[in-house]
Design a protein around this nucleic acid. Sequence first.
DNA 1: CTGTTAGCGCCTTCAT
DNA 2: ATGAAGGCGCTAACAG
Lengths: 353, 353
Amino acid sequence: MGFEVTDQPMDKVEPGSGPQWPTRQATLGDVARRAGVSVTTASRALNGRGRIGAETRRLVQEAARALNFTPNPMARGLLAGKTGTVGLITNDLVGRFSIPVLMGVEDGFAADTVSVFLCDSRGDPAREQMHLKALLSRRVDGLIVVADNARIRPSLGRDVPVPVVYAHGESADPADMSVTVDNVQAGRIGVEYLLSKGRRRIAYVGGVTTLKGAAERAKGVTEALAAAGLGLCGEPMFGPWSESWGREATSLLLESGSAPDAIMCGSDHIARGVLDVLHDRGKAIPQEVAVLGHDNWVSLAADSRPTLSSIDMQLQGLGRRAAQLLLDAMAGRSAPGVVRLPCIIVERESTMV
Amino acid sequence: MGFEVTDQPMDKVEPGSGPQWPTRQATLGDVARRAGVSVTTASRALNGRGRIGAETRRLVQEAARALNFTPNPMARGLLAGKTGTVGLITNDLVGRFSIPVLMGVEDGFAADTVSVFLCDSRGDPAREQMHLKALLSRRVDGLIVVADNARIRPSLGRDVPVPVVYAHGESADPADMSVTVDNVQAGRIGVEYLLSKGRRRIAYVGGVTTLKGAAERAKGVTEALAAAGLGLCGEPMFGPWSESWGREATSLLLESGSAPDAIMCGSDHIARGVLDVLHDRGKAIPQEVAVLGHDNWVSLAADSRPTLSSIDMQLQGLGRRAAQLLLDAMAGRSAPGVVRLPCIIVERESTMV
DNA sequence: CTGTTAGCGCCTTCAT
DNA sequence: ATGAAGGCGCTAACAG
């Protein structure tokens, strides 16, 4: 099961000395020679172009298999003017959001057709610019920029010579293609879900509304409540997306005299803080107060006390969609604008009566 | 600041119609023509080979800049027989360990020299095999396999035609190069640290010892205690790496009559569970009981009640080291064997008197 | 149906 | 100090 040419003498073989890199890979010439045909014929036989004798084709294919031949993508790309690669630039690999998007993107491309270069700019525009340059000089056929959902990001500009899709965070330029999350819908379905569970006094603890996503979620919440003829229970609480804010906000909420029967949270981190304080105060969850998180971050939500229901942004699907859009654009069918994808509820104990 | 050739007539320009892909990139021929020299001279001027008149060089460089020329890596690679790319195969992008390793790997390569193809096998050997094939047919110059630290993984085999470095998890074949974490040392420094804080009754709640990492950490713990003439407080508790196990183990521990003044944990998840139960039972942390986590997973450790001290595996450094090893191997200096990198303590409230 | 010729963009002898 | 020619591996004309 060797990957290299075993058919002809190698340059420097030291028997029994273990792997010997680099070992020359088989070329189309090798295949042709072994099959006793010309290079062109070999090429055609393998690619299925033009008319080829059945026997010849078989011969060539066999030779290719025997030599473990795979076409050199550089030679191919040089001719075709395309590399079959795309670049993926992300801001915050540490931030957990990039990962599922990234996996979705990978799903979206056939692995043996398009490969993905990964670059992390660490939130530094200079690094991003550097990576952009590097990727373009690698002649990627397209780019995906995984951006922060919290704010609209500047476009890479219109003079980038390949199609670009912005994923998760959207580009400021409406002529760009962006795929992002429908945060308003997320807020809405959260409320609708809690209403369906019989809750009427819904409080909200979210992220600071200077962040785009946080503001949109809050908007969806307000709208859905209004549609049901209700208002928020207590003041809406906006703070950092952290556990300690969840704890603090819950204390404030309870001490202000509000008696919510559900608390909807802007993140799972916040929700964890909420759970802790409710627990300390002896509130039964979900019987007295239901808690709904946001992000469905499994390592935070799946093993808490009680386990945490959460809104899932379906980021992997978003990544797939971004890849699809990019493929279309690379094929010449580009569709500018912002696509907003819906979220779903993942139900666990914290909301299950 | 265009990326494309603006110097000569483009094929199809529709003025005012926005970006027009694909726009031809400048070639060395374009540069040479603009500078009024031959392609050979242009090449030499830009690469600094051979003797070139100072003025000629300036001219060429200026032309290159004006045309935004970057050499086509496929043409270059075709000639050089190398692509300047490496493949990175990971098992579990969702599992958080791959990410810092990945970032370290990125740091380890000069972004404008080596680019990284990312592939996630999702723990499926068939997918891994597929990605391996795809990467090899892309002619990567080397491979990094980010593996699970919990078990020794099978080697990709000796007939892979490029150097391979295994990172985080180690390969079963000692002829391979692996960079991994020194789990024994981790256990040891954890104990030594707690001892230095004046703790003497140290309990241990770890992962199941069928997992390699868990067993090694436990070994380090035992050794360090023995070296201090001490033993473990209570039975060592081994279970899943989860919060609920942390909670359960703590209850068992306290109910068994052990009165630890410190609990060392196999993961931050476990530690979070430990914190919760200690909190419920009114134990002051760290005054009565100190708690030490493992992984230093910031989103779990940095905002808990109290914030959690933890052992950090320095995975980013590990990734850098893996990249370095691979670079050396690609340059012909390969160093088989397993490198074990030390961990450090990150101190937060849960252990600070 | 098959082989010959040419060329993708670049670098490297070899000449001048 | 510069240029011309050849070739990396492959595919797309154009013969035959």
